[in-house]
Nucleic acid binder design. Structure first.
Lengths: 150, 150
DNA sequence: TATTGTTATACTCTATAACTATA
DNA sequence: TATAGTTATAGAGTATAACAATA
């Protein structure tokens, strides 16, 4: 019997999808980490800069939520990023216990380099896949994510 | 214009597929880690036991390759697993510098518990997806993995 | 000399708990 | 009291380099 995708039922159930996802994600993450490191960054730094770029001057709690890490973990990364001159922290005038994180010029420069690395990584990932297939993949992944968070 | 998947081109390119994969994989991995921990294991322990189950009495270098980690990292995990009574290491009679890793009865018991957790995780992941969609997802992920390793 | 595995050491990411400053 | 963020500490996973044993 044909599934319409070129796989029969015997093959389809060979590997749990969670295992396939874990292995793929490990391989792909490792490749991405290498590219980011070569460009002078890391995954958390990239995710933090990306979150800041899409919505500048965020409070740390918002930022931690956007990146998917705890506040203390974010503090840890921001310490390094601030020391490296990538971001600044200043108190929110409206509430002095909130701190607003902003990207510096050097942060923007690194962001651009990391974005290049991310774009190159993405191009490599998409090889052999049509836009439709990539869109379908994104939709399937979104379903998986929803399944574990609900 | 319709792509046939219910997504139009404007939506399709909103998010790089690498980012979607990273985020999905983080969320899914975290959920899986929690299940494995609740069952008394961890991801590396699960992957090592799984590799041993599918091909018993492997040398450590084979095992490290199958799991996707370095030899020294495997030694580290095996130390803990051996101390916990999950595996044994014995010298290969054919070549005394090679060590064969075997699962103990306790290792088998843990393997079964972790497999239960993995099956439950997989069932949850598949919610709302047909067998055909899961098979297609697996094929797409295989393409991504091939793209970064080639 | 080359290979298998171990040991020593260290790095990154993450977390929890206790703390400070502010509201 | 409650909240935003920091600091101290720790644990898991991984890695490289130097080493020992064996081939």
């Amino acid at each position: 019997m044909s599934t319409g995708y070129g796989y029969d039922r015997a093959v389809m159930h060979q590997q749990p999808i969670g295992l396939v996802l874990t292995r793929t994600s490990r391989a792909v993450s490792r490749a991405f980490d290498e590219r980011l490191a070569a460009a002078g960054g890391s995954l958390p730094v990239w995710l933090i800069l990306l979150a800041l770029k899409t919505q500048p001057a965020r409070s740390q709690s918002e930022l931690a939520g956007a990146v998917g890490i705890r506040g203390a973990t974010l503090s840890h990364h921001l310490d390094g990023m601030e020391a490296a001159g990538l971001v600044t922290r200043r108190r929110d005038p409206a509430s002095r216990r909130t701190s607003l994180v902003e990207m510096t010029e050097a942060g923007t420069q690194l962001f651009l380099r990391l974005r290049e690395a991310a774009v190159a990584h993405d191009k490599r990932l998409r090889a052999g896949l049509s836009d439709e297939e990539v869109a379908h993949l994104a939709a399937l992944l979104a379903t998986l994510a929803a399944n574990v968070t609900s």
